[in-house]
Design a protein around this nucleic acid. Sequence first.
DNA 1: TTTATTGTTCTATGATCATCGAACAATAGA
DNA 2: TCTATTGTTCGATGATCATAGAACAATAAA
Lengths: 105, 105
Amino acid sequence: MKPLFHPDTADIQLSSVLYALSDPVRLMMVYKLRQNGERACGDIELPIAKSTVSHHSRTLREAGVVRTRMHGTQRLLSLREEDLETRFPGLLNSILASYEETDEL
Amino acid sequence: MKPLFHPDTADIQLSSVLYALSDPVRLMMVYKLRQNGERACGDIELPIAKSTVSHHSRTLREAGVVRTRMHGTQRLLSLREEDLETRFPGLLNSILASYEETDEL
DNA sequence: TTTATTGTTCTATGATCATCGAACAATAGA
DNA sequence: TCTATTGTTCGATGATCATAGAACAATAAA
């Protein structure tokens, strides 16, 4: 099984992060991950097919927003909060705070 | 001449703002607008055709990031800093601060 | 009135995207 | 070993996008 690609902290691109978070489904995933901590893909309740969840998970991972680790048959997702804070201080917090201003919860 | 659409402050969508700012060209436009203040489309140096600049200007305007006003044959663009601050406090600042961490300047 | 300036709109193109279902791979459990 | 669970990958589809050039509209200047 091939190892999953994760960009180094220094290689995380702002445009990619903003793009990853500009999709309502992915933003909700990120919000729930921060609220609940590490979660398996399938444990994040989302109104879409599992293949689509997989696609979004990959987008978040390749943008450097999320880390994925294997655990049995599951993939556990977690927010790369510290890495993002290192790379772009305050960014994630202000985006998630903005998300809470929204009616999309 | 039709009036240009600008969303009300309360109607500005987070996803739309993040999407608008996820494009490197648009992010640069926003960065320069904050640095230099109100500018005509054509005065923002960008390595793309004017029809493409027009397209990006529209995306930023319709997302609520930028305001456009007529002035002779020119369209003057300005950042909706206060409106964005009202709607999503701290968001624009943290994104532009992050942009400065970048090598895209 | 004619010409120059500024930017939009139209049309087209190649690319990427979000979505789904079906098939597949890997692991866990019986 | 067989079966269930979990998620990825593949193939397809309809949509949207970034880009450019050409034609157009509106205003300013000569």
